[in-house]
């Protein structure tokens, strides 16, 4: 039996190819391998965040604080780098991930121990993290010249012809794939979101699983924080403001069910790429970037309608069964 998720991913992939094809008609160079790699590279951060968001959504929660987490961790790593340029970059990346996970664990603890609705918790931390950046930086920017060359070079470092930024996304995709399909830890996300009541009976701690998901999304936000700041070579209070909505949009377009328990890695990645293609293609074909938001919005609604239709319970088809006998 072929699972619904698979066919949905395939359909989304076709839609993505059709979208690229459409742009190709107006501007053939867009579909060249280099250009497409560029789009992937440009979408890498969105992909990484969408993977984290997906883990949280699978457990029937939502993490609105991801972009603020990213900005706070980005500011911290940038300031740390400018103050102590001698810290090796790999350690800095690790610190970014750790700090992100720590921030994520605050969300997780509030959801787990105090049983506050996740949307409220992360709406709160969204604002708090943003505020902390201001307190930390006193509103100052960390500019390119204050960052060490190695700090800025890593995302652009070419490995086998592909920038390291893309490699980060590829590693995250591979890691999350193994985690979500091959470990108890990852399968618990599906169980908790699919039927929290049943999860309790199978010995899965619902609260702890949600906590794990928030820590995971926090860690990925942390990595994305370093990548963002080093790629754009600037850190300030408002970086990635509102980006959490793109992340949620990528998940929804990717067919991750907001009701929890359903969704695939492929879906999250394709959803992010879909938004990435729209964002990169519109300027090329001379459509005002303001259309981008309208198109993204329309894509979300189409995706939701499609998912709702495919999830709708089909009839039991009693008669057909009777005729076969």
């Amino acid at each position: 039996m072929k699972s619904l998720t698979l066919s949905r991913d395939a359909l989304l992939a076709l839609a993505l190819i059709a979208l690229v094809g459409l742009v190709y008609l107006r501007f053939p160079a867009f579909a060249s391998p280099n250009s497409l790699l560029g789009v992937f590279n440009d979408t890498s951060i969105l992909i990484i965040l969408a993977l984290g968001q997906m883990a949280v959504i699978l457990t029937r929660c939502i993490d609105l604080s991801m972009a603020s987490n990213l900005a706070l961790v980005g500011m911290c790593t940038a300031m740390l780098n400018s103050a102590l340029p001698s810290i090796p970059i790999p350690i800095l990346v690790f610190l970014a991930m750790f700090l992100g996970a720590l921030l994520g664990s605050i969300n997780g603890i509030l959801v787990w121990k105090l049983d506050i609705p996740p949307i409220v918790v992360t709406l709160g931390t969204l604002t708090i993290f943003r505020g902390l950046i201001f307190l930390l930086s006193e509103g100052q920017w960390v500019n390119a010249h204050e960052m060490s060359p190695a700090f800025k070079a890593l995302p652009r470092l070419s490995i086998f012809g592909i920038p390291a930024l893309s490699w980060f996304a590829i590693l995250c995709i591979a890691g999350m794939y193994v985690l979500l399909t091959r470990t108890h830890y990852g399968r618990a996300f599906y169980a908790v979101g699919g039927n929290p009541n049943a999860a309790v009976y199978t010995g899965i701690d619902v609260g702890r699983t949600r906590f794990n998901a928030f820590v995971l999304s926090g860690a990925l936000s942390g990595i994305a924080g370093y990548l963002w700041v080093s790629r754009y070579a600037v850190a300030y209070v408002d970086i990635a403001a509102g980006f959490e909505l793109d992340v949620v949009a990528a998940c929804v377009i990717g067919g991750i069910s907001i009701a929890g328990g359903m969704g695939s890695i492929g879906g999250a990645v394709l959803g992010a790429l879909f938004l990435g293609v729209i964002k990169n293609a519109l300027p090329v074909v001379n459509i005002s970037p303001f259309w981008q938001q309208a198109i993204s919005g329309a894509a979300i609604i189409v995706a939701v309608i499609f998912n709702a239709r495919s999830e709708r319970r089909l009839g039991r088809i009693i008669l057909k069964k009777a005729e076969q006998i």
């Binding site: 699972s3 108890h184 169980a191 039927n195 199978t202 899965i204």
Partner: peptide
């Protein structure tokens, strides 16, 4: 108390799946 969106096999073994 089972999981609609998971496979039959996983419903049987979730929590103690062979590794």
């Amino acid at each position: 108390v089972l999981f609609d969106d998971l496979s039959v096999a996983e419903n049987i073994f979730i929590g103690h799946a062979p590794v």
